[in-house]
Design a protein around this nucleic acid. Sequence first.
DNA 1: TCAAATAAGATGTTATTGCAACTATTATTT
DNA 2: AAATAATAGTTGCAATAACATCTTATTTGA
Lengths: 155, 155
Amino acid sequence: MSEHWRLTDKGVTDSHGQYISAIYRHMQILISAELAPYQIGSGQYIFLMAIAFQQPITQKALSEKLLIDKTTTAKAIAKLEAEGYVRREADPADNRYQLLYLTESGREVVPKVQEALGRVKSKTRKGITDEEYDLLLGLLKIVLRNLSKQEEMLE
Amino acid sequence: MSEHWRLTDKGVTDSHGQYISAIYRHMQILISAELAPYQIGSGQYIFLMAIAFQQPITQKALSEKLLIDKTTTAKAIAKLEAEGYVRREADPADNRYQLLYLTESGREVVPKVQEALGRVKSKTRKGITDEEYDLLLGLLKIVLRNLSKQEEMLE
DNA sequence: TCAAATAAGATGTTATTGCAACTATTATTT
DNA sequence: AAATAATAGTTGCAATAACATCTTATTTGA
């Protein structure tokens, strides 16, 4: 009874947070290794893929879509631009916006990045059925929504 | 057909990686805010809790248990020691090992950290039943195991 | 119309994290 | 027993990411 601070295993390890962070860190390492040949880091590929999906797009829109801070977005885009994968163009209608496009080089690298991400995805979801995977995504989506809501409440 | 690089929404957004990283980043923010009063950052609390669970423990054991690089562990422990929550003691049987103990201050803060983590956990798993949560943990566990195996293969 | 407010981005700083390379200590091999 | 291996931990460096603050451009309101 005097050991009120002693913890059960449940309390320490069995919460999604621990798994999420371990998975995140390990995936970062895997993805970095996969994309190293293209000089694309784990902090940039999401932006490259999002631009490939919707072109042109602004940094603001990217930040909101990916739920990433706008300063992080700015720096990631700067790297992608420095590598020659992305091109910036001021929006003629509103000069505050930078419209982002893939360059020729960017269009060439996107399928390779997509394949690399596919490899990582299939490695990591081995042993999980399609039904289970859908379920996993659904639950992760709920967790993420809870977190985003939390953020709105703070504003 | 010339647009072989154009992506479907599935390909870009519907993979666990995106959710994992977004959840990870947002949880880091939430936890940092919750633990700010105790001068404990999002990079330290896991170690504090793991030491509370098993005392004494070495940095090596912490790194393996938490799947975190030993240099990260070293730095986190250094911070916890600087804040006065953790005490280091060379293992008399093998001076390479540092045995880690909670200090009095550490024992006092652990329940508060636990409560804070509990708050974060219940906020983020809102709308998820116990059965679904168990399922989520199970699936995350599989993903993490796949990633750890990947690591072993590289050795 | 012109000042104030708002919006998009950029920059500087800080925290978390991992790799490479290093020190110190213990174990192994010859 | 001395030389070599292996192990635990530390340090320096670089990448990711967020917050605070600043700049520039647009919109709003008086």
